[in-house]
Amino acid sequence: MSEVLVVVDHVEGAVGKPTAELLAIAGRLGEPSAVFFGPGAEGAVDILGRFGAQKIYSVPDPALVDHLVAPKAEALAQLVESVGPAAVLIVSGGEGKEVAARLSIKLESGLVTDAVDVQPGEQGLVTTQNVFAGAYTTYSRVTQGTPIITVKPNSATPQPAQAAGTLERVEVQISSEAKAARVTERKPRQQTGRPELTEASIVVSGGRGTGGDFSEVEAFADSLGAAVGASRAAVDSGWYPHSYQVGQTGKTVSPQLYVASGISGAIQHRAGMQTSKTIVAVNKDEEAPIFELVDFGVVGDLKKVLPQATEEITKRKG
């Protein structure tokens, strides 16, 4: 069975859930091998093995983390040349997609971005994508080279597996051209104690209808153990940080439950949440387009509805 390379998504060594999901997908397609960029692979051996990584290629060269995108693409290209994997899987995020893009050109290999599923097929892997703000589902195949696929978080369920997780250190040559864009400073996002927006199974978002006070939205989110999101109107007004924006120019989320409160449901917002399994809205305007999408909607003032719901949920929990 061929190896399938999974690029590990980690923050200073802490491995995120999307990586475990990719390892589960890789397990369907071949033998999962993790690729760990930057120092600290030793600390991740245990968790990567537990989710199915047979091998862990560690590429500790600090150039990989001190520069943007290009060195990772170079390192991956060298690894693909030497390993000959059946596919390369990368978490779909800003940097992941760009690494995949450069790699695709280097290897003259087909690239599929934002896949929500990858399955083995008779004529090669079949990837599933949601396009046009989720209005269509497409099934695609890579017809040239090594399939390079970026996969959205929440596209698979991590599978506990007892795999070897054998650490193998890899030396790569990083060109000086690839080191031309330097990361001079990195400010990690403030931790909120809530789940990561793109990984959460429940997301509660607030929009202009909050009037600038997100406390009802946050309290409701916390009663459900949810992540908090925001519309662009709320972000542009400075009410919530941009990193929480859901939509075309923010994050795409696909949780089990999405609650839109005080959000009208503009096409650009829908683009980021339309594939959520269950959609709920609270909006005081019964004509708001968001109601076209919902499984359950409350026409009412979120300032009254959300606190009452929060109280009721907390009471039920006992």
Binding site: R186, K187, P188, R189
Partner: peptide
Amino acid sequence: GDTATEYVEA
């Protein structure tokens, strides 16, 4: 960025 704000120069 996805997990951090990065300052990049070239």
